[in-house]
Design a protein around this nucleic acid. Structure first.
Lengths: 343, 343
DNA sequence: CTTGGCACTCCACCTCGGTGAGTGCCAGGG
DNA sequence: CCCTGGCACTCACCGAGGTGGAGTGCCAAG
């Protein structure tokens, strides 16, 4: 049948071998070298025929006549989808995750350690997204008087995130009123999802005495602002130095890549389109000019299977060790999830 | 006299011209090109003699025979110390600072915007240190019950920084007791410098009922931990992509520089040794292997002249526009200081 | 379908002068 | 005493060949 003839078993073996060798050596792999390194029981000439077919189908590509073959993005895609499996971490790496992450004191620290860890074990650029506000729930809202007429509003979420805003009330606010507002605010939104907060607080100010409604309105508005804040889709990154080590893998320079990485928007989109599970995006699939030539391996993380609060992942040249990266990313995500669940 | 002969006026002019031309063109500057671009009223031959003297004294250096001259670190040092003055920002740049920084909502945001701004106007790598805890004062300590026996401790400083810790009390704590502790805690340390907090809280737990002393002891210990936390010497960085643009200025590669920049310790030391005023550190003066070849222009910032809470600065190739960098760094520091003073 | 052989292609590397910018030195002039 | 023009010298840079080797495609035979 056609599927059999077009993706015959040995042809896939050849593709797999090409990907592995090219990832290992960064040199176009020729038919002879291939039969030497892998014990396929056929001659170079046979391999050449297979290669010609693979090239016709767009899985590999020849930089120039009389050079070996290099996988195309399509070739890597097939490799990831069908020819490889996630490589579990070594014991040493698992232990490294434990010792590295266990000392974290708060959310900032967890995120900071995670990103450095990921960069270190993958030797790539690591990106970790802060647990998104919108998917978490309110743990507590605190109102702290700074001066008689100014209040600091502190929003604490169950992911451990803390947001703060200063509210100017326009005039002095008695401590008793403040305590009342604080209590009713917490009664209203405590333990509720942030997504629901805007609905819950509709008409909140009207329940108070007329003279207080103005500043309470401002207060609520500020709180809502903090809740929906887009900026809060924050990211941290580490391991950019690793890019320089792979500079031979980029057509001319690392510059466009570094540039793309500094644009928060680009990075957020990288994750925005990602599924909650393990996602691999290869080369041109990234749909950003600076990132053709790079692949992203990402996954969601959270306090449980279903509860994805953000994403994390690594970015490197398309010529990367996909099975290894996938293993590292999933393992780190799982461990971070466990830590989040504990706090 | 000897000083006159060793640093004669024209020789300094020549050095200044060499630095300026080299910074502008990145090419070793020869005697002929120099007389053409600057209207010094002498011939190339004369300049050659001056150059030979400057080279003897170690201010400039010849990459190879029959090439022009390049300033040495010592040459840049003299240029910065005696041959240049801080270049004020253009109106457009000042306006950019305003519009960029004015929208900040909280401390994190101020820091994030500042570092991006600095990277953008200097076209170098920008580094901003978070206002250090140790130099700021307590604004408020909040205790939020999460479960009957667990409390979230939130420390708010007058620089707008917020620290949080979770405290396990081992058993249920009545709300009334908690309120009492909160009130007395704030009475004790409110508006005091963080440095003084350990002393102020000595014996704090003893003032309460015996059955509460244990958990209050834990609480105080956690608070002190947050106060002295070293990790809090945090930094943010932006503009690493600019390094790639200057890759021709680095002997072989940007890699060691990126690597050095990823080590928090290295960066902290960069600032740690810096004065509160404007500091320029050139090439080997940085005393870090990866950073020979780079210069750092840094300054302290804070809510006033005397009140330096942290540092910020830029890092780039030694071949940088020192007067411009110095102007940008001081201007940004001043503006950030003003914003801090407002909140 | 596989295999060895063969002719061909093209990159990577090296060598080798030519060119030009820049220097150091020297002797003459103000 | 300092400046200047002249002159010989040095050396990086560049482009033009020339060579070797790896790899291919095709074909005829097994």
């Amino acid at each position: 049948m056609t599927t059999e003839s077009r993706l015959d078993e040995r042809k896939l073996d050849v593709l797999r071998a090409i990907v592995q060798d090219y990832v290992a050596t960064r040199e176009p792999v020729g038919s002879k070298a291939l039969v030497e390194r892998h014990n396929i029981g056929v001659s170079p000439a046979t391999i050449r025929n297979e290669m010609a077919a693979l090239e016709d189908e767009g899985y590999i590509h020849q930089p120039h006549t009389s050079a070996g073959r290099v996988p195309t993005d399509k070739g890597y895609r097939l490799f990831v989808d069908r020819l490889s499996q996630v490589k579990p971490l070594s014991g040493a790496e698992k232990r490294a995750i434990h010792s590295f992450l266990d000392g974290a004191v708060d959310l900032d620290d967890v995120v900071a350690r995670t990103v450095r860890l990921l960069a270190q074990i993958t030797q790539q650029v690591a990106v970790v997204q802060y647990p998104s506000l919108s998917r978490s729930a309110v743990r507590h809202v605190e109102l702290v008087p700074l001066t008689p007429s100014r209040i600091m509003l502190v929003l604490i979420t169950d992911t451990g995130r803390v947001e703060q805003r200063i509210v100017d009330c326009g005039g002095p606010v008695p401590e008793a009123t403040l305590a009342d507002v604080r209590a009713r605010l917490n009664a209203e939104v405590g333990a509720r999802r942030l997504n629901d907060v805007p609905t819950l607080l509709e008409g909140f100010a009207e329940r108070f005495a007329a003279e207080d409604r103005t500043w309470i309105g401002v207060l609520v508005a500020t709180l809502l602002d903090a809740v929906v804040e887009q900026r809060e889709e924050r990211l941290v990154m580490a391991g950019t130095a690793n890019l320089a080590r792979f500079r031979h893998d980029f057509p001319d320079t690392v510059y466009p890549v570094l540039e793309a990485l500094e644009e928060q928007v680009v990075l957020l989109r990288l994750f925005g389109e990602a599924q909650s599970g393990l996602t691999v995006r290869i080369g041109h699939e990234n749909a950003h000019e600076g990132l053709v030539g790079t692949s992203v391996v990402a996954t969601g993380y959270g306090r449980g299977e279903k509860d994805v609060v953000a994403h994390l992942g690594v970015l490197g040249p398309t010529r990367m060790d996909y099975p290894g990266m996938m293993g590292a990313v999933t393992a780190v995500a799982a461990y971070v999830g466990r830590i989040l669940a504990e706090t």
